[in-house]
């Protein structure tokens, strides 16, 4: 059995375990569970190891999601995957930040050892839609290459909508959008265990929803990248 396949299986097991351990029902499995083809598995040597892989993406509730992310980090740190030694976290995130900035398609924000990438405007979604545009895919593709290289991180995908429509609909829409992005990243080779999804609805606007331009800014995906440290 290929090592990668084993690791993936174990990681997903750990993921489910982590989900069960997390505080009081703050996460659940989304209804249409996305199917993930692990692209990081070398092709010819591997006979399509789909069966043991549960392609579920963990969805965290907008309240207390940071705790959920911390739990995930702790979980991965104890697992067999990549970790960053404490004294190289700075270097690791610096270099990763530089690589992300080099793509130039989106703002990269750094606070401490956390990176925040915001995809808004043209590189986000149409109103009400949760379908990835080709423009968005063009942005996400090179981004996923970097995320795959810097694999010792947890990537939380945050979905945000504008304020048109009901809160419940927006909540669902934002989760759906984030999940679509997460599935795309998985399709590009990211392990599902590194990904969590949070839908925020229209609750966390970055600007006013009065104008079309403002709404476009609010309709966004944020990728939060945290290093996995021991």
């Amino acid at each position: 059995m290929n090592d990668d396949a084993k690791r993936t299986a174990r990681a997903l097991g750990a993921c489910i375990l982590g989900a069960c351990l997390a505080v009081g029902g703050c996460h659940r499995t989304p209804q249409p569970a996305p199917v993930v083809v692990p692209a990081n598995v070398p092709g010819p040597a591997l006979p399509a190891p789909r069966a043991p892989v549960d392609p579920a993406v963990t969805v965290l509730q907008p309240t207390g999601f940071q705790q959920g992310i911390q739990d995930r980090i702790r979980l991965l740190a104890g697992g067999p995957g990549q970790r960053v030694a404490l004294d190289t976290v700075g270097y690791y995130m610096d270099v990763q930040q530089a690589r992300l900035q080099q793509l130039r398609g989106f703002p990269v924000h750094r606070s401490g050892s956390r990176l925040l990438v915001t995809l808004a405007g043209a590189s986000a979604f149409e109103p009400g839609s949760s379908t990835l545009s080709s423009a968005t895919e063009a942005v996400l593709k090179p981004l996923s290459v970097i995320l795959a290289e810097y694999s010792a991180t947890v990537v939380s995908v945050h979905g945000h909508t504008d304020d048109s429509g009901t809160a419940a609909a927006n909540q669902q829409l934002s989760e759906r959008r984030a999940t679509v992005v997460a599935r795309f990243l998985m399709a590009q080779g990211l392990r599902a265990s590194r990904l969590v999804v949070v839908g925020h609805g229209a609750s966390t606007s970055v600007t006013s929803n009065e104008s079309a331009a403002g709404r476009e800014q609010n309709r966004r995906i944020e990728l939060q990248i945290d290093p996995v440290t021991p």
Binding site: D87, V89, G90, Y92, Q96, Q101, R110, E149
Partner: peptide, 26 residues
């Protein structure tokens, strides 16, 4: 990423990874 795979010069065996960059340019 943070693994120095190969290199040349006087520091072949040393991978310098300072904890904080002074400048990260666009």
């Amino acid at each position: 990423a943070a693994d120095r795979l190969c290199g040349v010069g006087f520091l072949q065996s040393r991978a310098l990874m300072p904890p904080r960059a002074d400048r990260i340019y666009e």
